[in-house]
Design a protein around this nucleic acid. Structure first.
Lengths: 118, 118
DNA sequence: ACACCTAGTTACCAAAAGGAAACTACTTAC
DNA sequence: GTAAGTAGTTTCCTTTTGGTAACTAGGTGT
């Protein structure tokens, strides 16, 4: 696909880039769901989070959490308990996704009602 | 991962399901970008949309548009011109994603500024 | 000793996503 | 007749994603 047309105004280009960046960071089936769960619950230990998100495998949960941690959206804390437990919570950056999460939740609920009708 | 714990309240479960539904419909690298572009511009012909979204291949654009059309987010109109042209635009359902798009745009722009620092 | 809890990791595999390049089919302009 | 523009499709390929199941490694309870 050739690209001879720089049409959209600069402001729009920046907006679209923002959307793209957000999408990149939240890519995949589970990241936004993990964030929504942490957002709703505050903190979670690894196993609890896994039990909570229906259908996710530990391998996948582990990998997604690593990605989120790397992008500074999630904080991982090892607690000095016996046996050791690990707590996951949103960073301020992660929490700042609240508008995105809320908008997606609202839209999804409405879509299910009006389009899927169930 | 076993699932003996139905912890989150019903209201939260519904919210998380909403997020999941939204994520499913907008899955992949390009859908939300296409929507953002249509949202910013109103209408686009196939080639213009392709030229506009940097890096997308016609095959991929075609497939994504079909998905979006199937889910009633995008409307495809064949215009009786010579040569025929095809116009793509958001449906009301697609337009109702504005809060999601805006939130993602804002968050992404802010993330780039504060975390990536460029 | 053995089962069970914690938090993961590893190996293996299938399906999906996505990119590159070529190609179709139709029309118009030169 | 040939090039160029419309809107895609087809083929081939590689990478990524995500799932299952088994396994590691430390500690607790009986």
């Amino acid at each position: 696909m050739k690209k001879p047309k720089p049409a959209l105004s600069e402001i729009c280009r920046v907006q679209v880039q923002g959307v793209k960046d957000t999408q990149d960071l939240l890519s995949g089936k589970w990241k936004i769901v993990i964030i929504a769960a942490l957002y709703a619950n505050g903190k979670f230990r690894f196993m609890d989070l896994g039990r909570h998100i229906e259908g996710i495998a530990p391998k996948v949960l582990s990998k997604e959490l690593k990605d989120l941690e790397m992008n500074q959206l999630v904080k991982r804390t090892v607690l000095d308990t016996m046996p050791i437990t690990v707590e996951y919570e949103l960073t301020p950056q992660g929490k700042s996704l609240n508008k995105v999460v809320d908008a997606m939740a609202e839209w999804g609920v409405n879509y299910r009602e009006t389009v899927l009708k169930r």
